[in-house]
């Protein structure tokens, strides 16, 4: 089984030279730590920065320089600042190559729910609805089941939707799944996980065909 770092490492393998990438809060943020050496990848922060650098050295925090998770950060060589409309302009017009998001639920046709639990949690969608409506490639990083042990890979989302038919791939602690017309297609399986375990943990349509390679991270 993968832990959150394993999930992030596996997603980092999807990065390509020259990619502009938006990483959501939580596991997605960890992907930044595993960018393969030699690749020029530019991270976008939707609050107005291209080129997110590492956390500042202790004592050098700048309140005017944060990421979308409100954490203090730094710039990198070639960074640029811009306003929020420009930020979502580059997202909406398809300039961002890859978006990695967390989710509460994903359906087997690529719908995603990650912003609201009616009557319980009211946090808001932030930039997620803009991102899922426009990004060319959306990968969801999440645990396969919720805290109650229920599947988060469903035939239909039960929570309010963030976007329709938009998720292309899901990487969970159990495996890598591509969303196809036939449902969640298992492409790779996590170490020490059986196909039956994946089947039991997946409520939506699951396709398992041929030899399934084990994830290498």
């Amino acid at each position: 089984m993968l832990d959150k770092y394993g999930i992030a490492k596996r997603i980092a393998q999807e990065l390509q030279d020259g990619y502009y990438v938006n990483l959501g809060i939580g596991i997605p943020t960890l992907v930044a730590n595993y960018i393969p050496e030699g690749l020029d990848v530019v991270l976008q922060s939707e609050n107005g920065l291209l080129g997110i650098g590492p956390f500042p050295i202790e004592g050098n925090e700048d309140a005017d320089l944060i990421n979308a998770g409100k954490q203090t950060i730094t710039t990198t060589k070639g960074s640029a600042f811009f306003d929020s409309a420009t930020s979502f302009g580059m997202i909406r017009s398809g300039r961002v190559d890859l978006t990695v998001l967390g989710a509460m639920e994903v359906s087997d046709n690529g719908d995603i729910a990650n912003w609201k639990i009616p009557g319980k949690m009211v946090k808001g969608m932030g930039g997620a609805m803009d991102l899922v409506a426009s990004a060319k490639n959306i990968i969801v990083a999440m645990n396969h089941t919720n805290r109650a042990g229920e599947s988060k890979l469903l035939s239909k989302c039960s929570l309010p939707i963030t976007g329709l038919n938009c998720v292309k791939k899901v990487v969970t602690n159990l495996g890598v799944f591509e969303i196809t017309e036939r449902g969640f297609e298992l492409k790779e399986i996590a170490p020490d996980v059986t196909i039956d375990e994946v089947k039991n943990a997946t409520a939506g349509r699951l396709i398992v065909e041929g030899d399934i390679p084990v994830i290498e991270v």
Binding site: P54, F55, P56, I57, E58, G59, N60, E61, A63, D64, I66, G69, K70, Q71, T72, I73
Partner: peptide, 12 residues
């Protein structure tokens, strides 16, 4: 005051 919500740093 410019309060920071999440102070994140790396050590010197």
């Amino acid at each position: 005051e410019k309060r920071i919500e999440q102070v994140t740093t790396r050590p010197k």
